[in-house]
Design a protein around this nucleic acid. Structure first.
Lengths: 172, 172, 172, 172
DNA sequence: CATGAATGAGAGTTCATTCAT
DNA sequence: GATGAATGAACTCTCATTCAT
């Protein structure tokens, strides 16, 4: 899909329809406008993302030793969603203007989770969780772009690495 | 600057000149083309970034206990650069097409530094440094956008938090 | 065609399309650019001219009394080409910048022919054939403009007159 | 002078003033408009041409054997004018729109002279003098462009060649 | 007298969008 | 339901021309 590759402005209707082997008027038979298709794609992603995130919560009574697993699980789920819906994720998470909002929401949710878990005593509290959450979201985005979508790393690998890093750090 | 806010395509010469209270031909008195101004801004940022990064390297003979300091120092330097050159950084690091390349180079450099330091025995080697480096760059970008530029956090705070996080992790 | 009348610069797309009763974008539906259309017209003329000139050569074994005929034939062919393709000829031979080159090539070819024929002893050799060739090309151009295209003279008449003049001169 | 090289439309005021080492407002101190300068140059040429032509008439009682001389003399005078005033001649005789009119007038004058001389019995009357006159004017223009201004031939050489050609032709 | 700085008017071009068929 | 053909509106850019100083 052209939008995912070139963003909104560089994507021309003429190219979209050429790729789809239809004519321009046909496009307007199915979509109200260029903006509308784009928005629809963003909405599809949002739908998927929210549905996914809602389902990816592990039960609340996870034991201490399960925290790492829980985090890895959630990350893997996100990366898998991104992998299986690359185009739509690229649009909704990277190139659209709404991406800002979407990422903000995701950040808030992560911050919540972390705070909750910290309250349960799993983490030390020398860092601010809003910063950590933002760092995580930024990391996820850039890893998707540079490691996941090019195919050099699997969701599993990335989830493991990031979990390890964010839980234990680099220091020996 | 309009470019920093809206990117290249949504930024119209007509808006730029309206903001500057001049007419369109005046723009072309000072700049060769829309593309040229944009590229010049990107170049200015690149220049600053490379110069900065080159200077922010601590001496190689830093003692073990200095590693944390070294990393915090480097991060603070980057965040300060971003803060003092918000517009140009936004353009060069976020909205330009060259941003991809610029971030890739920065990632490579960070990976190098980390690998070197790991060889000196400062870090454990259970994570891949290319992933860590990418995670760091992604984190930096998103923290700049959501915490630094809105003004809620200082370069110092962000550098401290991120150093803490990346060195020691969240786990108690 | 506006180009033939006003040349490249004074011809505006807005006028072309007004003449054709369409809007400006329609122009770009059929032509790549203003420059491209113009060049295409020049190329069409060049193609025609070269093809014509190549074909208008009489056999080499023409008898002495045939030389006059040969020249008249060649001239008539050129004038006919100009008459039947007035617009394109005007563009390619008169108003385009490439016209200089095109006329230079034609001059060279005529010079060749004359030199060859002189070597066969048909002409006296008290004139330089490069000057004669240039004179002929200049004459052809200006006669086309002032006598042929306005319709006051036919290709045949012009060819006869010029042949007569260039072979025998005015002197009694 | 830029006009002579590039014609009216491709010549920019900005280039003219750069060449003259003055600023654009200064230009408008001395000339009313771009068009006005151009027209002034054309007028200068016209003035020179008419003055010249008026003076270049040999006495009417020239003897038979003087006709050739008379023609050569007139041609040489024209070529000399063109050589000594290349820029202005290029403008007035080649690139301006008025050139058409100027050449037409010159053609008419030449036709007159020829007709007169023919009436005196110097020429045979198997050619139409309007065609001959046009051919001569066309030849003069193109010879000036290709032989005189590039410097390969002198006015004298060109005048001799053309006189020879137009009086006696090529035929042995 | 000369100029630095600016502009009105208009050029070519592009693109999302829509009729008539 | 689908399209060939067309367009309104907007864009970047240029250039002859003119103020305020």
């Amino acid at each position: 899909m052209q939008f995912a590759l070139h963003g909104f402005h560089k994507t021309k209707i003429s190219e979209i329809v050429k790729e789809a082997n239809v004519t321009q008027p046909t496009f307007y038979l199915y979509f109200k406008s260029k903006e509308a298709v784009f928005q629809e794609l963003v909405d599809v992603f949002k739908e998927k993302l929210y549905h996914h995130v809602a389902q990816s919560k592990l039960p609340a009574d996870v034991a201490e030793e399960g925290v790492s697993e829980r985090i890895a699980y959630g990350l893997r789920a996100v990366f898998e969603l991104f992998q299986q819906n690359e185009e739509v994720a690229r649009i909704g998470f990277v190139v659209s203007e709404e991406a800002t909002t979407i990422k903000a929401q995701m950040t808030a949710q992560i911050e919540n989770n972390l705070t909750e878990e910290a309250r349960l005593g799993y983490f030390h509290t020398t860092v601010n969780f809003d910063v950590v959450a933002a760092a995580l979201v930024g990391a996820i985005e850039y890893l998707a772009i540079t490691k996941l979508w090019p195919g050099s790393h699997t969701p599993d690998e990335l989830a493991e690495e990031i979990t390890q890093l964010f839980l234990h750090g680099l220091k020996k």
